[in-house]
Design a protein around this nucleic acid. Structure first.
Lengths: 149, 149
DNA sequence: TGCGGATGTTTCAGTACCTGAAACAACCAT
DNA sequence: ATGGTTGTTTCAGGTACTGAAACATCCGCA
């Protein structure tokens, strides 16, 4: 209730124009990033969900359960996405020798090739960032790190 | 300048670790923003698409066609989303007096109430941004403006 | 005035995504 | 060995999305 130090409740009620504008701008960045990502995926005849899953598997093979955790969705959902990628030969299911319940999904050679091409076609890495100086990119990196930390 | 300023072609072929890290961080921000937005919408029993459309209509009523353009999807898709919002009394269709082909979608009083509550529940405006000083927020704002400009 | 092309909306078929519940197999502690 | 737990899949149900086709309306032009 103090007049000078804003409590979390006051933060909630007081919009603060600067913060609002930053949120608005972040919203635009998010929209643009997504647009780019989806259209990049579409060029490879992949949906966004398929592209995300395939990218994950390119780092390392993962059991279905872990995939669901990383993608923040239900395991039953992952089944379908892997099904479709497997039907196209981009991903394969392997039995886990240590636990026969587990199926480990892994990117095939072809899957890794597609994922690499997809990664390189991400325009967002070039166009909007290209206009920033090295110093600005460093500052942006540090700010984003703190926001996420 | 030729030796120090990379051309667009060079940017394309040379990954540049700093840029890569910034892209990676932006990806994380995007993921977190989306997560927040979706869960905020879910608290009001809305899907992300419904929340976006409702927020748009809170600024001003729009014909179905314009909605599709703003949401970057097909008009036939908008029909369904508005149908579901209309069934819940958050949106209504009005005839356009100037053109009888057009149906203008508008948020109802209840729809505006829900949208306001949704906007205020966006945690992303508070948590990650709260850790930044005013100066950092200004710098971030300017950088984002240039990226999007 | 009437005709024909363009435009706005909806309907429909088809696909993908996503959830929650239920089935099933395999694990593991007692 | 039994029973509870865990990993995956199947299924039903709902939303999102596209592209084509239907339909009404608008508008330019003869």
């Amino acid at each position: 209730m103090a007049a000078t130090t804003p409590t979390p409740q006051e933060m909630t009620n007081r919009p603060d124009p600067l913060t609002l504008e930053v949120v608005e701008l972040i919203g635009q960045v998010v929209a643009r990033f997504h647009e780019d990502y989806e259209s990049g995926a579409a060029e490879h005849a992949l949906t966004g969900a398929q592209a995300r899953l395939l990218s994950l598997l390119c780092l390392e093979p993962l059991p279905m359960r872990r995939l669901a955790q990383q993608l923040k969705c239900e395991p039953s959902n992952v089944t379908g996405i892997v099904d479709r990628l497997e039907a196209r030969g981009l991903v394969e299911r392997r039995p886990d020798p240590a636990d026969r319940r587990v199926k480990v999904a892994a990117a095939t050679e072809e899957g890794r090739r597609v994922a690499r091409s997809l990664r390189e076609s991400l325009r967002f890495a070039r166009e909007p960032l290209a206009g920033l100086s090295e110093g600005e990119r460093v500052a942006l990196r540090d700010t984003l790190r703190r926001m996420l930390g």
